[in-house]
Design a protein around this nucleic acid. Structure first.
Lengths: 142, 142
DNA sequence: CTAAAGTCTCCCCACGAGTGGAGAGTCATG
DNA sequence: CATGACTCTCCACTCGTGGGGAGACTTTAG
């Protein structure tokens, strides 16, 4: 009985397939994250199988959330390193998110300019102009 | 005299280095374009060197222009095929550019939503909240 | 004990638009 | 004719985030 209690009570760690099912991520992705150091396993089974703690689920949720916010795995890892050092990563995450807003703004700006250029071109577009010998498309004065 | 006139008058074609200098593009890029079929050479010299016509310069200007407008080489090639068939590619280019505006709009929309999500998160951000045991960053309710 | 399912490592593939280099051949100038 | 500049082909690599599969091993259920 005690042995059973110990057995069921001791979480030796999930194998990767269980973590995959519980997190909804492919096994390949979990291995990839572990290789990157993003998702440390607590160890290996006797046969060499990766073993993950419950905490890995929180970690993966965190990673996924930051990924949907547009952070790269490298940036996410930066935050996790802080967390793993025992500190609250909120400050670092804030910085990353602000930087991300900056990137987005730059991109939107760039896209807006491009859009305007395209609009301007199309505004004066003649779909069937006179053929010119020295230009591929007379609408594009290159 | 006649021979000289023929010699100077006959443009046997530029070698790739000349085209590179005159177009401002790297030799490697020109070879790459030629491999893709984007920039046909008029032939080869006896020694196997690519020879390009003057027209290649216009072609490259065209390619560059459409590239700055955000079209892929594949899309550009689509337009050039029409041109090479002897037709005016204006209609096809117009379609591509309109499609490109559509892509840009979709991207801007997506970026705007992401930006808003980030803004919302940062609006209520607490850079030094109480530590919680079951969450990596209390600002991110994952 | 056996068969199936799970897991391991290792390597290649994808995308787009090139870039870099090796080794060999060609051309132009002195 | 020699030397340097030019060009050729072929191969690998870049960046990020994994996916696919082979071949071997481990674990689990019956």
């Amino acid at each position: 009985m005690a042995a059973v209690a110990i057995k069921t009570g001791m979480k030796a760690g999930m194998k990767i397939g269980v973590l995959a099912r519980r997190s909804g991520l492919p096994v390949k992705t979990l291995r990839y994250y572990e290789d990157l150091g993003l998702l440390p396993a607590i160890g290996r089974s006797e046969g060499g199988y990766r073993l993950f703690a419950e905490e890995s689920l929180r970690r993966l949720a965190f990673i996924r959330r930051l990924k949907t916010l547009g952070l790269s795995l490298e940036e996410i890892q930066g935050c996790l390193v802080v967390h793993d050092a025992g500190d609250l990563p909120c400050g670092d995450i804030q910085i990353q998110l602000e930087r991300q807003i900056g990137r987005i703004d730059a991109q939107i700006e760039e896209l807006g300019q491009l859009r305007q250029e395209l609009q301007g071109l199309l505004a004066g577009w003649q779909s069937d102009p006179a053929k010119e010998w020295d230009v591929i498309c007379p609408n594009l004065r290159v």
